[in-house]
Design a protein around this nucleic acid. Structure first.
Lengths: 337, 337
DNA sequence: CACACCGCATGAATCGTTTCATGAAAGGTG
DNA sequence: CACCTTTCATGAAACGATTCATGCGGTGTG
């Protein structure tokens, strides 16, 4: 390669990395040779010598959940704009997959890791941090002040959803997404619980489907219709929109009219929430913004005098039909988008 | 590291890569030291010397489309099982993003690339292949016999959808997803067209929303309701399920009852198709299987005596309510899943 | 007892870049 | 014209692993 252009390899490197230190003529000569030979820099060699990689890892809980693809898109924007590549990994909420992905990322010497961990404390994450790899928690509060984390106030989110239903007169309310280990789910649950506790006569039923997915929501629907109508909850707050969509589908299938007989509020406000034929009320999180902010914090970590930040976004209730009365069919009631 | 265990670096390498050539005692000593020091192999150095990387690239058209996340999951399964890491990239159907991703993958010296390209012939792809990087086309027919491709017979898929609607008596039928450059869309269109041409009196309306997304489907709905009812199509085949969901949502919003007044058939059969409150009929593609098969072919490329394969899967029509009459509310009509 | 062989650890060469001290050539100044 | 500065290209030393020829001690064989 260098030979072809009649220059030393050092000069080629300069053309690639500090083009202003090379004379115009030489630069052109080298660029020509590069084009002619289809030369592509070997990133491994670059990284080995330079010591720093140009990739960032993102580990999400469920790549099939549109919430995470939206977050990923936000991350991608920032990361790509900074000239870095993104390695997107899916832990499927399984610690062993998470650990395997983190091991690969460590071997790749990624510049940093963005992660929504499967558990509160992951030893693999800790050892990564111990090795000096910047880690930013995504959609998760930091356990301590010594790291960056981008979170959403899910207690507030749960409360917003519950208060909305209480205001509309519901007293028997279900929380679907029960005993998950995920802090996010626990917080949402806590928010709902507190709102109900402040309201005399309100009553909480907790359902714990196996998975936080559409199938889990269907499962919950089956469970709910099994309760005698007199005692059955008249509304539900779901731990996420996938569950809410499954629940909606299940209820409709069982002949329970939504929202007339049963109101549903989801969580995350994924795009499909608005697109459901009974558009889903949902607690909106700033999905892309979450990803973008986390990526920015990660990039900032390696800069001088960085101080850890732990921004907490406020969620916002988006009311659609699934928790209100049927609208006039001719009106456009998509709600804010 | 080597010093800590009292052995040479060569021995450490042997422990890591050919443990059977090392005596048990030495192996234990080295492994202890590795654990103690938290040593993590530098993948760049490994790759530089060994010449081969342990990563595979996957470039999809739209990470926000659940179809692609399902495909990605299939790819991931196979790739991870082979001990490789996956770099997931999103081209957003934009050639320049695709090119940028391919450039990064080339610099990373990935072992191969799986891609659903934005266009029929991508120069970047060709140059990648010229460099000897195995490339497998995903959800796309190969332009020639000299490469692997995993495709679905989308002409058949379009035909299945159209024939289903024709059988149910529809004669004015719309195809939504018109003038996209994507071969997949063109094939689906062609299949619909042929079925209609074989049926006297059948008439095709082609709608071309800006994007193949939920928003595009809504846009199409607005266009359709603008047509006087007497001439308006009574059914639509959509280029994918996102469009179909948007169309469904739009129609319902405009007071057009689905399926009674307007039937809809989607394409891909993503999970949300079944979860819509009016469950969506759709042309199912073997999503994960597509990804799995493509990944297997990619892995096979580097083996001796590999012969290129170009399997074509047959899609299958899944009939749900959006194209049939309302079912008994108490029945479980989810259709095959 | 000599020799071949086997198992195992070693150390040096190597991969393709970046980096940096070095110096040659060109340009500017008094 | 001598001297100083600036501009620009060079070549060699890293980076951290893998790989392989080498050698060493111990066994088995004739």
């Amino acid at each position: 390669m260098a030979g072809r252009a009649g220059v030393s390899v050092g000069t080629v490197s300069n053309v690639l990395n500090r083009p202003d230190t090379v004379s115009k003529a030489t630069r052109a000569k080298v660029l020509d040779a590069i084009a002619e030979l289809g030369f592509v820099r070997n990133e491994s060699a670059r990284q080995l010598r330079a010591g720093s990689s140009r990739t960032v890892g993102l580990v999400v809980l469920d790549i099939a959940n549109p919430f995470f693809t939206d977050v990923a898109r936000g991350v991608e924007d920032v990361v790509n704009a900074a000239g870095l590549a993104l390695i997107l990994c899916n832990s499927d909420d399984r610690p062993e997959k998470e650990a395997a992905h983190l091991a690969v990322l460590a071997e790749q010497r990624v510049q940093g890791v963005l992660i929504t961990p499967t558990a509160e404390l992951t030893p693999d994450l800790e050892s990564l941090r111990a090795r000096g790899v910047p880690v930013v928690l995504l959609d998760r509060r930091a356990p301590g002040p010594d790291q960056c984390a981008v979170a959403v106030d899910d207690v507030l989110g749960g409360r917003l959803a519950a208060e909305h239903l209480l205001e509309r007169g519901h007293r028997r309310i279900a929380f679907v997404g029960g005993h998950s280990d995920l802090p996010q789910v626990q917080e949402r649950h806590a928010g709902v619980l507190r709102a109900l506790q402040e309201t005399p006569g309100a009553e909480l039923t907790v359902l714990s489907p196996d998975e936080l997915t559409v199938a889990g929501g269907r499962e919950a629907a089956a469970r709910l219709v099994g309760i005698p109508a007199a005692r059955r909850p008249t509304a539900a707050v779901c731990a996420n929109d996938l569950i809410a969509l499954g629940l909606l589908q299940g209820m409709v299938r069982y002949g329970v009219r939504v929202p007339d007989e049963f109101a549903i509020v989801g969580y995350d406000d994924i795009e499909f929430a608005a697109a459901a034929a009974v558009p889903l009320s949902s607690v909106r999180k700033p999905r892309q913004e979450l990803g973008r902010r986390a990526a920015e914090l990660l990039l900032a970590e390696s800069r001088e005098g960085h101080r850890h930040e732990q921004p907490v976004f406020e969620p916002e209730l988006v009311v659609r039909e699934s928790s209100t009365v049927r609208r006039d069919p001719a009106a456009d009631g998509a709600g804010p988008r």
